[in-house]
């Protein structure tokens, strides 16, 4: 018996969310008294793979294959399911990332496994029950879900568990399962990645703005503040609906749900649908000209004032703080 964790690589490197998933999987392995194996797909160097030992992976299965260079969920799911069988995995852990969302359900069906996605805590093993807490109703609630299948699949929300070191020596082992040709029916034509931007779903800090900014031409100060903080930028629904900002920045009930350590909302009133997507942020700062804005009711810190005055001053103060 073991725990298997899928470690998603981007251009041969692992991101923080991967180390978080490994840390989480290691904690499950400890609860179950079993060992942790990681499965890496794509061309990742030995040194980077060894790095996974730092977070508790004692074995790393390395699938290095040009055919699998690009992410094709159908083929990747086959590889992960084969790895789970080889390792007799009782639990399979993935990140609840864009690719994780396309992968985990396929892996679950292949293994006839129950799946919890959006997990926010370690599973509780209560009198034979296997219970996992996950977000539900777009952050308005949590659902404690029991999995009764022999194998369990869990997709962990970013920033929910944190990175925890637990150094072991990682043994890297080449793995080359058979993959059927029909798993490559979808073909990746092009990948466009903005390398200088912090990606929103797993960002630790997020600066977000709403209609209070009055127009897309005023986003310069939002971007400057975000750059200074190393934060991702986000926006409210009316802003993306008006095409002031791309849809990929829309957070809220019908946009992306996020749970950063810090969420700064500027010129956003805080409609229930917006709050649903951001309420699991650890610290919320609201800057709004209207002292009655509902957002202040769920904020930790607030400034009542005109964004066009407050934000430039905040940028100055931040520059001074950073020296």
């Amino acid at each position: 018996m073991s725990v298997l964790v899928y470690v998603e690589q981007v251009d041969g490197k692992f991101k923080k969310s991967v180390f978080e998933a490994v840390s989480y999987a290691k904690a499950i392995a400890d609860i179950q008294g079993s060992s942790l194996t990681a499965i890496s797909i794509g061309n990742v160097g030995e040194a980077e793979l060894k790095e996974l030992g730092k977070y508790g992976a004692s074995k790393v299965l390395n699938v290095s294959n040009d055919q699998l260079k690009n992410f094709i969920n159908q083929a990747y799911a086959s590889v992960i399911a084969e790895a789970a069988k080889k390792e007799s995995a009782a639990v399979v852990v993935l990140s609840n990332s864009f690719s994780g969302k396309g992968l985990a359900p396929r892996v679950a069906v292949k293994l006839e496994a129950g799946l919890v996605d959006g997990a926010v805590e370690l599973p509780k093993l209560d009198g034979g029950q296997f219970l996992v807490k996950k977000t539900a109703f777009s952050g308005k609630a949590f659902a404690i879900t029991e999995l009764t299948s022999a194998i369990k699949v869990i997709a962990l929300n970013p920033n929910a568990f944190g990175v925890k070191e637990s150094a072991v020596e990682a043994a890297v082992e080449a793995f080359s399962p058979e993959i059927k040709a029909t798993d490559f029916t979808a073909i990746v034509k092009e990948i466009v990645r903005a390398t200088n931007k912090v990606s929103l779903p797993d960002a630790e800090l997020v600066v977000s703005a709403g209609r209070g900014l009055k127009g897309p031409e005023n986003w310069g100060m939002i971007e400057e503040l975000a750059n200074l903080l190393g934060a991702a930028t986000a926006c409210s629904k009316p802003v993306s609906d008006a095409d002031w900002r791309p849809h990929s920045e829309h957070v809220g009930q019908t946009g992306i749900a996020i749970s950063p350590n810090l969420y700064i909302a500027i010129g956003i009133s805080g409609a229930i649908q917006h709050l649903a997507g951001v309420s699991s942020s650890k610290v919320i700062v609201v800057i709004n000209i209207d002292p009655e804005a509902p957002f202040f009711k769920v904020a930790d810190y607030g400034i009542v004032g005109d964004a066009f005055v407050v934000v430039p001053k905040l940028i100055e103060a931040l520059k001074a703080h950073k020296g």
Binding site: E112, A141, A143, L147, T148, I284, I303, K313
Partner: peptide
């Protein structure tokens, strides 16, 4: 059936907002 929601939970309420003067 291989999964079932056993219980729901709501997030704990946040404390009161700390307001900082605009200047």
């Amino acid at each position: 059936q291989i999964s079932k929601v056993q219980q729901f939970d709501t997030p704990p309420p946040r404390g009161a907002v700390k307001l900082v003067p605009a200047d």
